[in-house]
Measured scan of single mutants.
Amino acid sequence: MTSCHIAEEHIQKVAIFGGTHGNELTGVFLVKHWLENGAEIQRTGLEVKPFITNPRAVKKCTRYIDCDLNRIFDLENLGKKMSEDLPYEVRRAQEINHLFGPKDSEDSYDIIFDLHNTTSNMGCTLILEDSRNNFLIQMFHYIKTSLAPLPCYVYLIEHPSLKYATTRSIAKYPVGIEVGPQPQGVLRADILDQMRKMIKHALDFIHHFNEGKEFPPCAIEVYKIIEKVDYPRDENGEIAAIIHPNLQDQDWKPLHPGDPMFLTLDGKTIPLGGDCTVYPVFVNEAAYYEKKEAFAKTTKLTLNAKSIRCCLH
């Protein structure tokens, strides 16, 4: 018999989150649709729960009410004593943790798909938090293969000092899905179709896995975050240069030392320094102006996964 890495157990509980950011409308629209008619997301033997994560922000069509829901799922915020004085999103995070967690427990949901849009030209993107997770690498390989020839990129946010504390991190297997470009507060049919297909293929993978299909060893190309880059700023902290036209919409493309990065209003080009080629992502993302992030630098690498098969009882 072929030796293989056996994944822990079959997958039982899956959640699909929309509206973690209330103005990213593809996930909101799909989740609302699936709450009314969820036939397309159901798979035999699998509990799939669509869920609106930040209903107040969705109602106002804004990213958040008090603070970013997708950055506060750490033990400090989840452990705060519940009171009306807490920011709305912290209270909501505790409610979500109660419903789908608790985080880092045996009772937490197996998989959470968190649906997002970006204003950046990132196409279909899967966000991975753990480079050693054979199950998710296999799932992402399946999704990428199923979507081809449509490109699907994998963004690895594993980093020693950049801690995200994402909404989906309460699950055993957290999956971020990011599709763009799409303006905030807008629905685009092409973007919706791409996100819908990503979810379909992900659920198909889980179904095949649960039925005992063995997935042979595989490898995927990923883009691992190195650092986030702020806009150049003046002495008052105001933005002093904008994304250069040569960099705009060039997510995932190589940016070499000396290539144009920013452009000042008086026409001066600010190039990339250093001696390493990087791959920019979230270029000129609207939501990241407040976070002082013009783009993120990534490096390209390959992740390998062992063969996996479900432990059938």
Rank of each mutant, 00 (worst) to 15 (best):
N117E: 08
P183T: 06
E89Y: 01
G212W: 00
K172T: 07
F73K: 10
I199F: 03
E47A: 10
T62P: 02
L162T: 15
R196D: 04
T44Q: 14
I270R: 00
L247W: 04
M82D: 14
E290F: 07
T53N: 06
C61A: 13
Q194H: 09
C310I: 09
G38V: 09
S108M: 12
I220A: 03
L69Q: 06
T53A: 15
V278D: 01
P245H: 01
G237H: 06
E76D: 13
L162E: 15
P102F: 08
N133A: 06
K297V: 15
A148D: 13
L156C: 14
F140M: 11
C311V: 15
I65R: 05
Y109V: 08
W34F: 09
K197G: 10
A294K: 04
R91V: 14
P181C: 02
F29P: 03
V229M: 08
R63G: 10
R71I: 09
P271A: 11
A165K: 15
F215D: 00
F113Y: 03
R196N: 01
T118R: 06
F100H: 05
G185T: 00
P280K: 01
E227D: 10
P254V: 04
N37V: 04
D230Y: 13
A202N: 03
L255C: 07
L69V: 07
L255K: 00
K268I: 08
E211Q: 14
S3L: 09
L46R: 04
L272M: 11
T299W: 07
T53V: 12
H33M: 06
S120M: 05
P271N: 12
D114C: 01
A39Q: 13
I206C: 10
F282P: 03
L136A: 01
E8R: 14
M198V: 14
V229T: 07
M82A: 14
D66E: 11
K32C: 01
G123E: 01
S3C: 11
I96N: 06
R309K: 15
V186Y: 03
A171W: 02
K163R: 13
E95L: 10
A219P: 00
H159F: 07
I191V: 12
L128I: 01
P102V: 10
D130M: 05
M195R: 04
A287S: 14
F17A: 07
C124L: 08
T118C: 14
H98A: 13
E235N: 10
I11W: 04
Y231G: 06
E24P: 04
L263I: 10
Q250P: 03
Y64P: 04
L247E: 02
I157C: 15
T2V: 07
D110R: 03
L147H: 00
H201Q: 01
C4D: 15
I191E: 05
T44E: 13
K60G: 12
K13W: 01
K163V: 09
I225S: 14
K49T: 14
V281Q: 05
C67D: 10
G22S: 09
D190V: 07
P87Y: 02
K224P: 00
E238N: 12
A15W: 03
L46W: 01
G212C: 02
K59T: 12
G273L: 09
S169I: 05
V31Q: 04
Q248A: 07
D251L: 05
H21L: 01
F295E: 05
D266L: 01
L147D: 05
F209T: 03
R91S: 13
N210V: 07
I72M: 15
I220R: 06
S307L: 04
A202P: 05
D266E: 11
P183W: 04
K80W: 12
L78Q: 10
H256G: 08
M198K: 06
H313S: 15
R63W: 01
L247K: 05
R92M: 12
H10C: 13
I206H: 00
H141C: 01
W252N: 02
K197S: 13
T302H: 08
G22L: 08
S83N: 13
K213D: 08
Q94W: 11
H21Q: 07
F100R: 03
A148H: 14
Y231W: 11
L78F: 11
D107R: 12
R132W: 01
I143V: 09
A286Q: 14
M261V: 15
H207S: 12
I65V: 14
D85K: 13
C276H: 14
A294G: 06
C311Q: 15
M261G: 02
P181V: 02
I239F: 05
I41R: 02
W252V: 03
N97R: 11
G258C: 08
K224Y: 02
Q250N: 14
L99S: 10
S120Y: 04
I191Y: 03
C152M: 07
Q248H: 05
M198N: 03
E290R: 09
K32E: 10
I52G: 05
K60F: 10
L247N: 04
T44W: 07
D85W: 11
P174T: 15
T277R: 03
A286F: 07
S83R: 13
Q42A: 13
K291A: 10
T277A: 08
Q138E: 02
N134M: 09
Y173T: 08
F29R: 15
Y109G: 02
H207M: 14
V222A: 14
F295Y: 03
C310G: 13
V58D: 02
R196L: 02
M82Q: 14
Y109W: 11
H313Y: 13
P280R: 05
P102R: 11
G123F: 04
D107H: 13
I170D: 01
Y223I: 04
R233C: 11
Y231P: 04
E76V: 12
G267R: 05
K13Q: 06
E84K: 13
K197I: 10
R92T: 09
A165Q: 14
D266Y: 00
V283F: 04
H256K: 12
C276K: 15
H313M: 01
P183L: 05
R92G: 07
F135T: 02
F295G: 05
E129M: 06
A305N: 06
I220P: 04
T119I: 04
D190S: 07
L247Q: 01
R56H: 12
I52T: 05
T2G: 14
A93D: 06
I52K: 05
Q182R: 05
G267Y: 03
N236L: 08
H313L: 09
L247G: 03
D104S: 13
R168N: 11
C218S: 00
C310F: 08
Y155E: 05
G258Y: 06
Y64Q: 13
M122E: 00
Y288F: 15
I6M: 14
Y88W: 12
I270D: 03
T167C: 14
Y231D: 00
K59A: 13
Q12Y: 03
H256A: 10
R91M: 14
F73C: 13
